[in-house]
Write a protein that binds this DNA or RNA. Sequence first.
DNA 1: CATGAATGAGTTTTCATTCAT
DNA 2: GATGAATGAAAACTCATTCAT
Lengths: 209, 209, 209, 209
Amino acid sequence: MKKDSKEVIVKAAIRLFNANGYSGTSIRDIASAAKVNSATIAYHFENKLGLLEYCFMYFFERYIHIIEEQFSHIDHGAKDCLKKISSELLHYQCENIELTSFVYREMSMDSQVCREIMSTYSLKEKYYFQKIFEKGFQRKEFLPHSIPYLFIQYKGLLMMPFINAHYLREVLYIFPNERFFEQKYLKEIYNWIENTLAAKVIEKKEAIL
Amino acid sequence: MKKDSKEVIVKAAIRLFNANGYSGTSIRDIASAAKVNSATIAYHFENKLGLLEYCFMYFFERYIHIIEEQFSHIDHGAKDCLKKISSELLHYQCENIELTSFVYREMSMDSQVCREIMSTYSLKEKYYFQKIFEKGFQRKEFLPHSIPYLFIQYKGLLMMPFINAHYLREVLYIFPNERFFEQKYLKEIYNWIENTLAAKVIEKKEAIL
Amino acid sequence: MKKDSKEVIVKAAIRLFNANGYSGTSIRDIASAAKVNSATIAYHFENKLGLLEYCFMYFFERYIHIIEEQFSHIDHGAKDCLKKISSELLHYQCENIELTSFVYREMSMDSQVCREIMSTYSLKEKYYFQKIFEKGFQRKEFLPHSIPYLFIQYKGLLMMPFINAHYLREVLYIFPNERFFEQKYLKEIYNWIENTLAAKVIEKKEAIL
Amino acid sequence: MKKDSKEVIVKAAIRLFNANGYSGTSIRDIASAAKVNSATIAYHFENKLGLLEYCFMYFFERYIHIIEEQFSHIDHGAKDCLKKISSELLHYQCENIELTSFVYREMSMDSQVCREIMSTYSLKEKYYFQKIFEKGFQRKEFLPHSIPYLFIQYKGLLMMPFINAHYLREVLYIFPNERFFEQKYLKEIYNWIENTLAAKVIEKKEAIL
DNA sequence: CATGAATGAGTTTTCATTCAT
DNA sequence: GATGAATGAAAACTCATTCAT
């Protein structure tokens, strides 16, 4: 008999926010999708913005947690650490495609909430990756390069399939929700780490000499 | 007395759509930003959706035109062709940051309009890039690889700085509107083309020596 | 090359006013149906109300003219005169079903225009019919009866098929535009004139025998 | 504190729809007449059309109910049944002049809603009257005649004073809301039933023989 | 004689929110 | 915890009209 309406609401909200965007989704759409009264949403989340913030937190708390957990094993090597993080984050995103997709899209807007999220989670994230890159440079695991530009590429790799989920499906016939995708795409990321970041090839040439 | 109101409206719409999203922007916001009566927007574009479609066309018509023009010189080599296209597209996007940013974000939504755009422009775009990749494989310019997965990476590189323009500015202190960015980022794309797409072939040859 | 746009506009207006009512029809609907610019309507009729008034005039001028013409032959007998008027009015209405239908409907509204029309045409009409009924009573052609209540019935007979044109078609499968209807319905009106208006007098006479 | 706003809205709507027509009445006119917020109308009736449909139902449900109730006593004779129905319907319409007037006018339009109403209520109504007429023919209570054409006349009698309420008042000085009218007009209908439908006269003549 | 551009006022509708229950 | 009723504000859209050309 327990409806656990809060969870039902969040599920519905994620689905609808992903499909129509935050502004394009009305409280009543969510209410009727979750089969609750729209006043119930106000009851649980105070207002529409509260629901958005909850979704952001729900995404970024776990996102940052993954990074923090793996970062603690950085001593095993920067490259391994980065690979592990990539694997875990990709898995996390694949398991939460709609949430990931909608959060990334909404974060591209210049709103109060987004700035607040950036100034906490994005800065934290940047801090950890900076440490990893720096460690990699120190240990000669990574080829020296501008960290921000590397980071753009890395984030691009990680975000792209989720921001453009529809495009992948309709145009490229790649389905990010299938297990096969996760495996194959992880290899691509590893590839990038090996070839662009770690630049084995050059090291090979050096090895030959 | 000629106000050329249509153009003024589009300019204002692009700016506001980028800042607040399509759904988050009201016709009246646009009207007052363009200093016209809101009925004038309906007169020129029928309704709000019409204005969105116009913006999409405005972006994609020129986008596809660039690809088509450069594709005609594919005989000079697939890699050169791809580099030329990348250079031109990056330039086009840098010159139209707001439009690019908003179009890419809005295209990530699952709406009627997006599906229509995809089924025309995205398919065309895919066609040309497929040809380029195939030509590159034939001529041994490119290392054989899954085209769709290469394409995801390439598109990711091209789109990322514009979807996350705010992030670049606020978190990474990279400013996509500055000339310096365009030059530096183009090198990164060239790098990807050389190292990920074409690289190993050459390296292998060297390795043979 | 002559478009005679005024006539085209009136035609379109009558059709649309009949289908959707005066308020339910926009100037632009009419303009696009008549394939003219909406400013052209303003040019010819000053404004929307002017177009309505024109339609009313167009209907009632000819309507009253028919009555006046037949009334001049009242010396041939009130019953014959009434029959002739009924025949001519029914024919006129059948030839202008849409106009008739829409005018009668619109006249049921309590507006400025309607009151003006009533105070001219309806009063004139009433004057003539009153004269005919009175003449009929004098000459013992008609059974004495309250003129207003007779008039309600008579007008009801004459208007009903046009006000409820759709009902006749969809529910009763009677088509007021077909020639057969006009003939058959005229007999019904004659019947009413003979049996309700004139009948009993004769019957009573027979009953006396 | 209970405002019973739904009922208040319907009352106001009927009055205004009658005075200015459905299209000529704005939601805000109704809202301010009913002293509620215009959103309250949307809350109760979804939209303007919903309010119209509600009014139609409100009229026709009771209208059909009267017919059905009286039809159950058809065994007492078709003529008596028809008289009883006429009496009750006339009374019902006199008690709801504005609603009756506006519904009949609006039903003359060729809209989706009207077609739906016709295909339910009008067909039902036709069914019952057809049965009554047929019964009357069988029992020799009524003179044989085309049922549809009889029905046009009968409906015309019943509707006419309400469609043309203004005309009755302004031109004929007959006031459908006064008790006197109902009594007098009912006699006219009875007259029509006796003289046109039952044609007593002929039977009288036969009786003499 | 006719029109394309533009508009102010007004329309319906939608929305997030509130509040008594 | 949850909701039905109600609302003020604002949204998109429609409309009749004007005016320079």
